[in-house]
Every structure is written in C-alpha cells, then in structure tokens.
Design a protein around this nucleic acid. Structure first.
Length: 917
DNA sequence: ACCCGGACGTA
DNA sequence: CGTACGTCCGGGTT
C-alpha cells in the first residue's frame, strides 16, 4: 500500500524511564544461559522495535539522565530517597547503550537536566520545525507534553511489549483533564518516588475534582473559600508555598540548553550485523524477525557458499555414497509429515558429509520431480547408518532414528546429538534454529516459511523438492557445525562423560520403549466412560439444583460468581482475575454448603474422564494397537525425563477411581500382539526413598545414614528422633508428620508450609523444623553448603555433573532468591536420582539383550520402571532388573528397590527374589 | 487458530 | 509461602 505523504516523524525515547519501568514490570527471570540478566534489555528492545516497526520514524533520539539536575538545587529533598541504581540494572543500561549504538540511534544527555527536560525541549524544537513527535517512555510524568503534534507511548499494563498511544483525548479520558494540567495534579497528590510531598488529605480523586473545578492552581488558591469540604481549605492554605514549588519541580522544561541535530538522528541504515551479534550474545533470537528491514533485503542463509544437492538420479546417489565412504562423520536429519515419531511418515533424508557439503534425498514427496526408489536408497545408505568407523551427528536424533527405522532403514546409531548437548550446557533454547543463531550467528529459514502455518499449513510431502532441499540441507549443515562448537564446551564443563555414558546411550533405550508402547484395555475404558457419564450427569443435575440454575461448572469465573456473589460464601484467596475457586479454597468451604462437595467431586470426575478414560483410547496406534508416548530428554530442568502425547507419567495412582484408570494399562496377551507364546505380565520395579537416601549420602548425616543402614522405616525413624520417643512408641500421626517433614526438607519447605500440610500451628511447625535440624545436623549443614555453593558458582550440579544454572540465587529480591534456593536444594537430589535411573535403564536394556530375554521396558515414571515380561522369564527378569537398579552406583547407603508383578498396572503383587548383596 | 490462567493428574 | 512435569477447559485474543 503506497504510503501517503506525511510529515517527518521524530521518536524521542526516555531511556531511563523505559528501562526503570521494564526493571519493575518484568519478572527478572530472563537471563542468558551464562546467567547474565537481560530482562530489562529485552523489554526495552522489544518496545523500541515495536515502535520503530509500527511508526517508521524518520528520526530517533534517546535521552538519558545525568547525575544531579537543577531540581536538586531547587529542592534538596528531590528524589532524595531514591536508592542507588542496582548493579543488575546498571549492567543492562550499558547493554542498552550498546544496542542503540549498533542501531545508529544517538544518545543525548546534558549535565543539570533530566531526560524529561531534554525530551520536552527537543519535542518543542521539533514541532516548531513542523515535525510530528512520538515520545516513548515508562513514566506517566511525560504525558504532560502531549499536544496536537506530540503523542506519548507507554508500555501496556498487561504485556510490556504492547503499548498504548496517548493523544490529547486519551489523556483527558484517563485523568479527566488535559495534559498541561498534570504538573498541578502531581503537586497536589505528591509523588513518593520523586519525594514530592503533596497536600495531606488530597488523593487522586480530590485532586482531579479540584483541577476540574478551577482553571489553574493560582485560581484555586485565590478562590480558596470555594474549596469544599472546608477542612481541605486549611490543608491547602498551609501547603500553599509547597504546592507552587512542587508544580515547578513537576513541570518539564522545554527550553534546555541543547540543539536538535536532525541529521545525526536520521534513522535507517544501521549495521545489521552488529545488532545481530549483540542479540546473539544476549540470546534474543525472538527479536531478530522484528528488526526493521534495512533497504536491501537480507539473504537468509546458513553456511556461506555451501554445496547443496537434491539426490534425484542414480548418479546423484552414487556421488552421495562416495562422499559417505570417505567422510569420517556426517550429520543427518529427516523430513516427515508429523511431530510424533510413531505417526510420522518419511518424506526425505538430509545428509551433510562436511559443514559445507550436503544432500537431500526426497523419498515421499507428492510433487512432480523424479524421486529415487526407497528400496534402492535403503540398500545404498544402510551400510553407513551403524558403521562403527563413522560418526553420525543429529539434532534430536531419537526422532530421526525412530522414523528411519519405521521406514525400513537400519536404526542409525547417534554419536553426537546437538539438542542434548545444548540441554546439558544449560542453553535456554535448544531448538536447532535458536542454536544456529546463538552459537553460529546463522539466521535460518523457519519451517513456516516453507510450509506456511495454521489452517493452510502444508505437510512436508506437499512442499517443492527444490525448496525443501535448501531448507533441509541448511539444517544438517548447521548440525554439523554445531557439533564442532558444542563438543569443546561440553569438555570445558566436564560433561563429556555425562553426555557419552548417560544421555547418548539412553537414546536407544528410549526408542525401544517408545516403539514398544503399552497396551490398554479399550473396551474396559469405554465401559468406564459410560459409567462416569452417568455419575457426572447426576452430579451436574444436583449442582444446578443447589445453585438454582444451570451454569458452566468448569468456568472459574462463573463458579466464583455463583459461590461468592449468589450464595454468599466467604471469599478466600484472590487470583489475578478474581477470587480463587481452587481445591484448597473449596476444601475449606466444605461445611458451608452442600454444593461445594458436589463441585469437588464433579471436577475430579471430569478431569479423570476427559484426560484419561476418553483420551487414551483415541491414542491407540492403528498399526500396533498400543499407545506410544514420547519421552523427552531435554525438557526438565533437573534432568528427569518427561512424557507426552500421551503423558504416561501422570496416570492416576490413588483412590478407587484412580486405580480403576490404572487398571486399563494391561500386559498385552492378545494373540498376534503378545511378545511370547505364553502368559505375559507387567513388572513394576521402583526405588524406595531414593531422594532421601541421596540426602543421606550427600550430607553424611550420622543419624540418617544409620537409619538407612539398619533398613528402618525412615519416616518412623525420623519421628522417633524428632519426637524423642522409642521407635515402637511412634504413633501413626507422628509418622505422618515426619513424612511431610522428610519430603518438605528436600523441597526447602518452611514453617508456613509445614503448618499448612500437617495442621499444626506455625510455632509448632517452626519448633519441629528446628528439632529436626538439631537431630540431623548433617542435613542442615548440607543444605546450607548447597545454597552457599550455588550462590558462589551460579549453578548446582548432580553427582554426575549435570548442572542447573540459577541466575536468581543472588537476587536482591528475597522471594526470588529464596525460590532459587529451593531449586538449588532440590535439583541435586532429584537430578542425581534421575541420573541413577537413566544409568539403570541403560544397564537393564543391555542385560536383557545380552541374555536374549524377550522381556522389555515399556515405561519410566521417575523412580519406577514398568516392563512386560513373559511369565517364564519373571524370576530372571526381576532379579536382573532389581540388581541392575540397586547396584548401578555405590553410595554410602543401600539403594533398595521393590518389585511387583501382575496382569495390569493396578493389581500388582510383590515378587520375591533372592538378592545377593 | 492461538495463548494464557486455573485447575489437577503424577513422582 | 516445598520440587519437577503435561493436559484439560474456558475465555480471551487473532
């Protein structure tokens, strides 16, 4: 659309104002992987880029404050109580200056003036020269500058990146009076942050009323007898001089001693590469597409001058094979039709035999070009996929390997996975495109540029081969290069063993588990669904009856209106959007109205039904007849696995109904599906108290070590210690409390939480925790030492060197610092348990294969392994799994495991095995 | 068609 | 105001 001719436009940015606002408005969670805080720079940059894009200014200037301004000379107390700029903000202000420099935007400061005054002056000069002015700030004081030619842009209240533009009308709507009267308003109300006193008894409402009533402050003071109510008159009279002085302080200067240099302020051809370099250092990949387009279009490219070929003929294929024969390492990647590897069809294979030499082998494109026969490709490529003298690189190789295997290829062995490497290094974003940007400086084509998005998104097989070749080749080239960058970083972090002895070998184990899937009893779940339907309908009718009318029980909003407005029940906690109707709140309202009980039951039932009973049957794979979860290796901050599509790590385990759902997971005895021609059982083996045992090991606390060495019931033993009674005098109630404490300690729980969970008073809870630490002084020391180390290093680590970075561990905000401390205390325990389980899985996998057993692992639920086992192998497999699990590492305490077996996941009986310790 | 908060399932 | 996850739903926005 052709741009209508318009007046030249100047954007003036209040540098400090915007940065301060970002500092306070944004959660200080954003940091680079190295721990450099960046949330202020990010907020500043995203707002600036947004404005540059939306308003396409011809000129841009940023103003900053200098030390003291004339206001301090006028009034000693001005901004007197403002604390020193915190260090993390100072550092980010420097980063902002670097950004502005790279963008070619001049910074204006002047001794004796605040940024406000410089902006006021520049705005006045600019409008006098016929320019249109936009002021970007985080400070509402600037709104007084709004007039016919000047608008002010403030960050949104909800999202910082959004903004609101104030013209004259918008100011009047917000305040009830025009912009030029804002200094009077501020003089009346006062401003604690500037230490401007204001008039006692005058708040926002009264000030607005007075300003509307009188045309100026002078008039107000002249006709002070008309001020209502009378008691205000006295206050106003007494504050007369202060108010007039305050107005002077609050009025922005428009004739400071500076000139407007428009030539210097012209915005346009900045050094894009410098900005990108800075964004890379700050890990701001999401801002890259929002950089204003320079005059000449940028070529989105990966490696400079690389050779990329589509493999379409026998001759092409022979060239590729020749290359594969001579190279020592190659990167591989597959293009497919879906994100779930069990549902993805192979569309093509990309291979890079060198960082600047890549091939794309199309196999399943529906578009016109010739494609080679898959059988032929398979024959020629197969020898390289597991070749012991070749190194195979991939980004998320688990996915590629499973897709290739399902397509008939030998499963490739992955020798380096860039996604896992980046995860171990603590990168915030482990996607290939993100890494290519932050580690290599490559701007890569997004998948949506190739196949579009939303409703009109193509599947990969419908995209043009030539374009997919460019896209896929860029990916493998990036992968190849990333290996060269990431490997030395893993070495520098001492994480090469963690990588090659735990994470990489685990890939094959997880592929086997994902591929195996687990059987569920679909007819049983369908029956259960019908039964729950009846119960839900009955509950629904009862709830509507008690409410007096139908409403949406699932809507927290509607429920809140009903409970608190219509039924008048006592309100509890607040949420951002209203009053909480959480389980916790409702539990407390149980006795006030019968509807509460019914709602709680309804919620639980619906959740179970929709998430499990109804959803699971839909996820049975049409070919295998089982459900296949995806195990994610690079998601959890502690090193645990996670599971999705469906999540099989949160199948209900408690309550009658929970167990009913769990009962649907069955040992697969269907003919044609069973793994052996005999009855099949599920075997579940889990670690007993592994995290508490690790606590004993790490802390070397004598009492805790002794309790585990003697094989005691740990919660009862804890109760006996802390309550000071013999073991056989511990009551169930004492044990229950000790159990809450044992878990709470590992999560950094405080008295408040203990009191809430046990029902004891805050004081009792406090005393109890103190007693605990007195009885287990090693634990107290260990927790303290962990926090100290975390603060010193900026990260914590597991027994095997897995790290978690905690940039907020030194935050000056106590709540945020304490949150980081709780993570610091928990991660080494949870993470080491995860490491141990992963090692055990690798050992079990290997042992089952070596012994030629048909038993196989199906699920991992953090401290539990679920296997399917032919009945005749039960004793052998149980013995094998339990010994591998308990002996995978040598700790100061024994690692005990429990084994149970049965026809389904709910009805399991202990399996007795002889364990030779 | 997407994103978010609130709620709730697991270890 | 104890840790770590994923999924459902409603309700807001594109």
């Amino acid at each position: 659309m052709p741009e209508r001719s318009r007046r030249p436009r100047l954007v003036l940015v209040d540098g400090h104002g915007l940065a301060y606002r970002a500092y306070h408005a944004l959660p200080p969670t954003l940091a680079t992987s190295a721990g450099e805080p960046t949330h202020v720079v990010f907020g500043f940059a995203s707002m600036l880029l947004e404005v540059l894009n939306d308003f396409e200014p011809d000129y841009v200037i940023v103003c900053f404050d200098t030390g003291r301004s004339f206001r301090q000379q006028l009034y000693e107390e001005y901004k007197a109580h403002r604390p020193e700029t915190p260090d993390d903000l100072k550092h980010q202000l420097e980063r902002i200056r670097q950004l502005l420099d790279a963008l070619g935007i001049p910074i204006v400061t002047r001794e004796g003036y605040e940024a406000d005054d410089l902006i006021g002056t520049l705005a006045a000069r600019a409008t006098a020269n016929g320019l249109e002015v936009l002021i970007v700030t985080g400070d509402t004081d600037l709104l007084q500058l709004v007039d016919e030619d000047v608008r002010v842009i403030l960050p949104g209240r909800q999202r910082f990146g959004d903004y609101r533009v104030y013209d004259r009308q918008a100011v009047i709507e917000r305040y009830g009076f025009p912009p030029e009267r804002l200094p009077e308003y501020k003089a009346l109300v006062g401003d604690p942050s500037d230490n401007i006193p204001g008039v006692p008894g005058i708040g926002e409402k009264t000030a607005t009323r007075l300003i509307q009533r009188f045309s100026s402050l002078e008039e107000m003071l002249d006709r002070i007898d008309e001020v209502e109510p009378p008691r205000l008159r006295e206050a106003l009279r007494a504050a007369r001089e202060t108010v007039l002085a305050s107005r002077r302080l609050a009025t922005i200067v428009r004739d400071a001693d500076i000139t407007l240099d428009l030539e210097q302020a012209r915005f346009g051809d900045f050094d894009r590469e410098r900005v990108l370099q800075l964004f890379r250092e700050l890990e701001f990949r999401s801002l890259v597409p929002r950089l204003p387009q320079p005059r000449q279009p940028v070529r989105k490219t990966a490696a400079p001058a690389s050779q990329r070929r589509a493999v379409l003929t026998d001759a092409d294929l022979s060239d590729l094979v020749r290359d594969l024969e001579t190279c020592q390492a190659f990167a591989l990647d597959v293009e497919t039709t879906a994100l779930h590897p069990m549902y993805a069809d192979l569309v093509g294979i990309a291979l890079a035999t060198a960082p600047d030499r890549s091939y794309y082998v199309p196999l399943g494109h529906t578009t016109g070009d010739t494609q080679l026969d898959i059988e032929q490709v398979l024959q020629r490529l197969a020898p390289f996929l597991r070749h012991p003298e070749k190194q195979r690189y991939a980004h998320h190789g688990k996915y590629d390997a499973l897709v290739l295997e399902r397509a008939g290829f030998p499963r490739p062995h992955i020798d380096f996975d860039t996604m896992i490497a980046a995860y171990l290094l603590g990168e915030n974003a482990v996607g290939l495109k993100e890494l290519a940007f932050t580690k290599l400086g490559w701007e890569m084509e997004e998948i949506t540029e190739l196949i579009g998005r939303g409703k009109k998104q193509l599947t990969m097989d419908r995209a043009e081969i030539a374009r997919v070749t460019q896209y896929a080749c860029a990916d493998v080239e990036a992968t190849y290069r990333l290996v060269e960058v990431l490997r030395p970083q893993l070495e520098a972090h001492n994480q090469l063993r963690l990588f090659t002895e735990i994470e990489l070998p685990l890939i094959d184990v997880l592929i086997d588990m994902e591929k195996a899937g687990i059987a569920i009893d679909v007819p049983y779940l369908e029956q259960l669904s019908i039964m729950l339907d009846g119960q839900l309908h009955a509950l629904e009718r009862r709830i509507y009856e008690l409410a007096g009318h139908p409403f949406n029980i699932n809507s927290p909003q509607q429920l809140s209106t009903l409970l608190f407005d219509e039924l008048g029940l006592p309100r509890g906690k607040r949420t951002k959007t209203g009053y909480s109707v959480s389980q916790e709140v409702l539990e407390n309202l149980r006795d006030t109205h019968p509807i509460v009980e019914a709602i709680l039951e309804y919620r639980q039932l619906l959740k179970l039904k929709s998430t499990y009973v109804d959803a699971l049957p839909r996820q049975v794979h049409p070919q295998t007849g089982r459900v296949h979860t995806i195990f994610h290796q690079t998601v959890a901050a502690t090193g645990r696995l996670s599971s999705s599509d469906p999540n099989l790590q949160n199948i209900p385990a408690r309550g009658e109904l929970g167990l009913a759902v769990r009962r649907a997971f069955i040992a697969d005895n269907r003919p044609g599906y069973r793994i052996a021609d005999e009855p099949i059982l599920l075997l579940s083996v889990d670690y007993s108290q592994i995290e508490l045992r690790l606590m004993a090991h790490f802390s070397q606390d004598p009492a805790l070590l002794r309790a585990f060495a003697e094989g005691k019931d740990i919660h009862a033993a804890t109760a006996s210690e802390v309550f000071g009674v013999p073991l056989d005098a511990v009551t169930p109630e004492m044990r229950r409390i000790a159990k809450v404490v044992n878990f709470g300690i590992m999560y950094g729980m405080q008295a408040y939480g203990l009191a809430r969970d046990t029902g004891m008073s805050r004081q009792d809870a406090q005393r109890f925790i103190e007693a605990y630490f007195q009885r287990f002084p090693g634990v107290a020391r260990y927790l303290e030492e962990t926090r100290r180390r975390a603060a010193e290093l900026g990260y914590v680590e597991t027994l095997f060197g897995r790290r978690r970075y905690l940039p907020e561990i030194t935050s000056s905000n106590p709540a945020r610092r304490q949150a980081a401390e709780r993570m610091a205390v928990n991660m080494p325990l949870q993470g080491t348990a995860a490491d141990i389980m992963k090692l055990a899985m690798i050992a079990v996998h290997r042992a089952l294969a070596e012994r030629g057993l048909r038993s196989r692992m199906l699920l991992q639920v953090h401290d539990e392994l679920v296997l399917e086992v032919p009945e005749s192998e039960l004793a052998t497999t149980t013995e094998l799994v339990t010994t591998r699990m308990s002996r995978v590492v040598e700790l100061s305490v024994p690692l005990e495991v429990d084994a149970k077996a049965g026809p389904n996941w709910a009805d399991l009986e202990p399996v007795r095995v002889k364990l030779s310790h």
